[in-house]
């Protein structure tokens, strides 16, 4: 998914979804990219609109949001299979606003039909659907050899359901109710993963002057060696693999620690601030940014 100049989404606003958008592409990023006259939002970039509550200053939020733009906004063709109309409409709208092309289906059969017949970048599938269950949909899709990444939305419990969902062929699993920011971040991560291919991950990861060697477990910035604990190394590796994207706390807890619960204490924030100390403290240009109300992003932009 190539990004446009300055990392702005190429397709945003310029490629209306087939069948016409439910809402005018007057949303957040669209307005920034192509519709400067689209209301008061044109000069305000704030992820808080869909990234949950925020109490911070506008400017900081805006800066963080810009940092997250380059990859996060790449236009994709998405399919939402969801029987709850309210949730479906809001989700479709939010996704279109960040520049994605969205198709929707209200039941499992229609969803399977669409998923098998159109070229998709990613499908968001509710777990419990009329006519054809969400898991059965994913299984049928996989049985026909379609490799399109699937994010399963579930209103069930967790622990085991998550495993069942992933085993059925889902690539990620999100429990309702979710924040749109969480969903967007996960979609981007899934798309990146699909783009890179499932197998090989480069031995050396690089962002600006920050380099991480997965073989020698050596991290340098500007040629200077940075000492990290094993966990900090894992954390940085995860962030570098998703560089330019928003990574939520939940994603970090899942991806780095393999835990699926929300700690009552801000454990992840403190780990991040340690990592930030290590990689950003002695350098002019910070790379690890906080995205208000969403999570973190490792990015060259600031």
């Amino acid at each position: 998914m190539p990004a446009g100049p300055n990392g702005q989404p190429r397709g945003a606003g310029t490629r209306p979804p087939p069948g016409g958008p439910l809402f005018p592409p007057c949303g957040l990023l669209a307005s920034l990219a192509a519709y400067p006259a689209c209301g008061i939002l044109s000069d305000v970039i704030d992820f808080r609109f869909y990234m949950g509550p925020s109490d911070g200053s506008r400017r900081r939020a805006a800066a963080a949001a810009v940092a997250a733009i380059p990859e996060a906004g790449s236009s994709m063709h998405l399919l939402i299979v969801e029987d709850d109309q309210v949730a479906r409409d809001h989700l479709a709208r939010a996704l279109r606003e960040v520049g994605h092309t969205v198709d929707v289906a209200a039941d499992g059969l229609e969803g399977l039909h669409l998923a098998s017949s159109i070229a998709l970048d990613l499908a968001i599938v509710d777990r419990m659907l009329p006519k054809l269950d969400g898991l059965a949909l994913v299984q049928s899709l996989r049985a026909t050899g379609r490799k399109v990444p699937v994010l399963i939305l579930s209103a069930l419990g967790d622990v085991d359901d998550r495993i069942t969902g992933l085993r059925a062929g889902g690539d990620d699993y999100l429990t309702k109710p979710y924040h749109v920011s969480e969903l967007l971040a996960r979609i981007d991560a899934l798309a990146r993963r699909a783009e890179l291919g499932s197998g090989e991950v480069a031995t050396k990861l690089k962002l600006a002057d920050l380099e991480l060697d997965r073989m020698t477990r050596r991290v340098t910035r500007g040629g200077k060696k940075i000492e990290l604990t094993a966990r900090e190394f894992q954390l940085l590796e995860f962030l570098m693999r998703h560089s330019g994207q928003v990574v939520t706390r939940t994603m970090l807890l899942e991806g780095v620690w393999d835990y699926h619960f929300d700690p009552q204490t801000n454990v992840i924030d403190v780990h991040i601030s340690r990592l930030r100390q290590a990689i950003d403290k002695d350098f002019d240009k910070p790379l690890l940014h906080t995205v208000r109300g969403a999570g973190y992003s490792l990015s060259e932009e600031d």
Partner: peptide
């Protein structure tokens, strides 16, 4: 499972409506 579904679905609707309105 039904309890989970019946509670999470309206919560999700509430959440997405509120988030959409915020936009």
């Amino acid at each position: 499972d039904s309890a989970a579904h019946d509670l999470r679905t309206p919560l999700n609707r509430l959440q997405s409506t509120a988030e959409a309105a915020l936009t």
